[in-house]
């Protein structure tokens, strides 16, 4: 009997507010801000001077519009192609960041409490009275936190990114500016989404030691798991800096904890993933990560109410 689907559903019963409601609220809020900008701006006429650089010569153009999205599209059109792509990329990324940041904290808190709160409220005695192994229990939490929850947040991001492009289409329809040409092409929406998925899988493996460490803490801490989770790596870092000239351990921990600090530019994603996939960094992360998952499973096996 495959228990995973029902175990994952269980996680959603417990964490509906942060897994479903929170991304829904953030997405709905940003959507309504966009809609407001789209509809509210029709009453005022905004005029903008655009400076266009074409073949080295700067020409100035005066644009008047009653719509923010139309203006945005005009301004983008005026930019050289490379710069435009970079702006659009930053815009798309900026649109994604509220959800990405919220997601990171949700997953962090979720994993940190996943094997702790049921010991605290004694419901571990109920969960453990059913024929579900400790291994599959821990796996269900890891899978929920690292794959299923990000997919939900990604859906919100996709909706927002699509919405902003659609609003630009709507705002410029009937004019001689083609939003399809100006923004849809450079935004590379579909391939961008696939990149997110690739990045997600890459990050899950890259940061596995970090997430597995949260599960370990969650399984053994008798109180305040947050202090353990942050305190131990922090303590190691301080000690290493005090007593050693080089700090390989703290550097390694830092690299596998901060969410992909090395991926800044969109263009770099694919190459970075390809470069790092078989690197020593990645292989060490996998070994440490899997070892910590096993430790978490063992600790869960011994775990009792607290």
């Amino acid at each position: 009997m495959n228990q995973l689907p029902i175990l994952i559903r269980r996680e959603f019963w417990e964490h509906r507010s942060t897994f479903v409601l929170l991304p829904l609220v953030i997405t709905a809020f940003l959507l309504s801000v966009m809609m407001l900008a789209y509809f509210a701006s029709t009453s005022d006429v905004i005029s903008v001077n655009l400076e266009m650089e074409e073949q080295g010569a700067v020409s100035s153009q005066h644009v008047e519009s009653d719509d923010l999205f139309a203006l945005l599209t005009y301004r983008l059109e005026a930019l050289p192609e490379r710069e435009r792509a970079s702006y659009i990329n930053r815009g798309m990324h900026g649109l994604a960041s509220p959800l990405l940041i919220a997601m990171w904290f949700v997953i962090f808190i979720y994993l940190l409490n996943s094997l702790y709160s049921d010991r605290r409220d004694r419901s571990i005695l109920f969960w453990k009275s059913l024929p579900v192994s400790d291994g599959i229990t821990v796996c269900s939490k890891l899978l929920t936190g690292l794959i299923i929850v990000p997919l939900i947040y990604f859906a919100g991001i996709a909706i927002l990114q699509l919405a902003v492009l659609l609003l630009m289409f709507a705002a410029t329809s009937g004019t001689d500016v083609s939003a399809l040409e100006v923004v849809w092409g450079p935004s590379a929406l579909i391939s961008r989404w696939f990149e997110y998925l690739a990045l997600l899988i890459f990050y899950c493996l890259w940061a596995l030691p970090f997430f597995a460490w949260l599960l370990v803490v969650s399984a053994f801490a008798k109180s305040v798991p947050m202090v353990w989770a942050v305190g131990v790596p922090f303590g190691i870092t301080v000690l290493e800096h005090m007593f050693f000239n080089s700090t390989p351990v703290s550097d390694w921990m830092g690299q596998h904890m901060v969410p992909l600090s090395f991926v800044r530019e969109r263009q770099a994603i694919a190459t970075t993933i390809a470069e790092q996939a078989l690197s020593l960094q990645m292989i060490s992360a996998l070994i440490v990560g899997v070892a910590l998952v096993f430790v978490a499973v063992r600790l869960r096996g011994k775990a009792d109410e607290i």
């Binding site: 029902i6 571990i124 009275s129 579900v132």
Partner: peptide, 27 residues
């Protein structure tokens, strides 16, 4: 099967979900 003293059922669990869960994991 095991029943510890009262209060080990998680407080957030819905009755229907409890049935779903046990049905899903217990043959």
């Amino acid at each position: 099967c095991f029943i510890a003293d009262v209060g080990v059922l998680p407080r957030w669990l819905k009755v229907r979900d409890a049935l779903d869960y046990i049905e899903g994991v217990h043959p």
